[in-house]
Nucleic acid binder design. Structure first.
Lengths: 243, 243
DNA sequence: ACGCGGTTCCAACAAAGGTTAAGGACAGCG
DNA sequence: CGCTGTCCTTAACCTTTGTTGGAACCGCGT
């Protein structure tokens, strides 16, 4: 993979969310990025650690999670190429949650210092990165609503639709099917239910002819009913640079 | 209330979380703030609105919430004097959730333009406000865990302890008792349970001699058991300017 | 004092989700 | 080709939470 392709998905995503000048794109491409390969299910940064760098996902899926004192794990978000899941560590140096890979991943690491330098020189990028962390927070708010107010089948549908919307941005939806590489255990951790119940819910959505989740891949069987079930309103993704 | 007292709680809070220079404090005090009085249960900004100003809580309690298409409401956070609950609107101009008062409130409004001017002149304050929104996001993450993974009694205990920690920062905890002006309906909306079940849980914690929640006020009966039940680890509040 | 509206509280029943335990499918590997 | 481990699947039973509907309580205004 050539040096130029590494920030490609990042640029694509930032452009969609906020707009980007030529100069800013060049500055991003000039960022010193250290690329590392990770296997599936590996810790990238963990709660309690002091971070000195941020992690750009070049290839693969990651998830952020927290574990309670009782040992129950909650997945907070799922992340795809082009995203910087731990951008928040720029100003919150000690991690309050874990970042782990779901699949084998190619990750690009950028030192906090390099990022600070970048956005001091291109002040617009500071607002833009800030905005990116605010969209992150908006997704957490919707995740709270999902886990707090929707019945389990609607929760699953909502997570699926959100993930699909974000995959669309980077051109990773093929027809009515897209990747969602979670085990049923992890689906449960994302929805705040047990793996057994996750299985029941998946099975039901399959039997109802709405969606099929199979070996890390979602097949949408009935678009209309999926959207209706999810009760999805994408405004919280703030995808138009509308301002 | 004199002009100087209005940002007092804000300064106190920012100082605790990140440290603040004399010059920065003066710049904050020079901010043009329009003060308005609100009754209880009033909308401040609503989902879908374009915000052009941010709202500093001078007196009283507010809450942020979202309502699903099915009409179920979820409270996302509770806010106290010194906080700017909609700071995110600075870069996310159309609101993705509601901000309402819980009690009668004194609110100070600052135009986005004035805030931008402030942090352009004092670049440190930009990072500081950014950091503030990141702590906001960290609280959402913990709220997800609370709603997703803890049984209802632990959820209530956790919200209580978090609120108390934040009230401590602005000197609003008197002995073993502090304000939490939510109806049982609203407690339910915060915890992702119904009002009836909220009532059951409150009753149980009272009978168990752990906490009493009564007319908008919490009395801690057994500190040790409350902390144990809440499983509270305050690191996510990022209250030390440790960096 | 009286009544009004919003809380708080409660009970009986229903539904959703958790727990435990166990068999079956499937991929990777020797 | 069979072994191994992980994941998926299901069933039976139990606990938590939701639903409905109604009674008691409280602050407030007249």
């Amino acid at each position: 993979m050539s040096g130029d392709e590494i920030p490609a998905a990042l640029v694509k995503r930032l452009r969609a969310a906020s707009g980007l000048s030529e100069q800013e794109i060049m500055a991003i491409h000039a960022l010193p990025i250290l690329v590392r390969e990770y296997g599936a299910e590996r810790a990238v940064v963990s709660e309690g650690q002091r971070a000195v760098e941020c992690c750009l996902i070049v290839r693969g899926f990651c998830a952020r999670s927290k574990t309670t004192s009782e040992g129950r794990r909650q997945i907070l978000s799922i992340h795809i190429p082009g995203e910087i899941p731990d951008l928040m560590s720029l100003h919150l140096h000690v991690m309050d949650h874990d970042l782990r890979t779901l699949t084998p991943c190619t990750l690009g690491f950028v030192h906090h210092e390099a990022l600070r330098l970048l956005y001091r020189r291109q002040p617009n990028l500071a607002d833009l990165f800030w905005r990116d962390t605010l969209i992150d927070a908006a997704m957490f708010r919707e995740w709270i609503v999902n886990v707090g107010q929707r019945p389990a089948p609607a929760r699953l549908a909502h997570v699926m639709v959100e993930l699909r919307e974000r995959l669309k941005l980077i051109g990773r939806v093929e027809g009515s099917s897209f990747e969602m590489p979670l085990t049923q255990e992890q689906v449960g951790e994302a929805l705040g239910i047990t793996a057994v119940h996750a299985n029941r819910v998946i099975k039901q959505l399959r039997q109802d002819g709405i969606v099929d989740l199979h070996r890390g891949r979602v097949d949408v069987l009935d678009e209309t009913r999926l959207l209706e079930l999810a009760g999805f309103d994408g405004r919280y993704l703030h995808q138009s640079p509308a301002l």
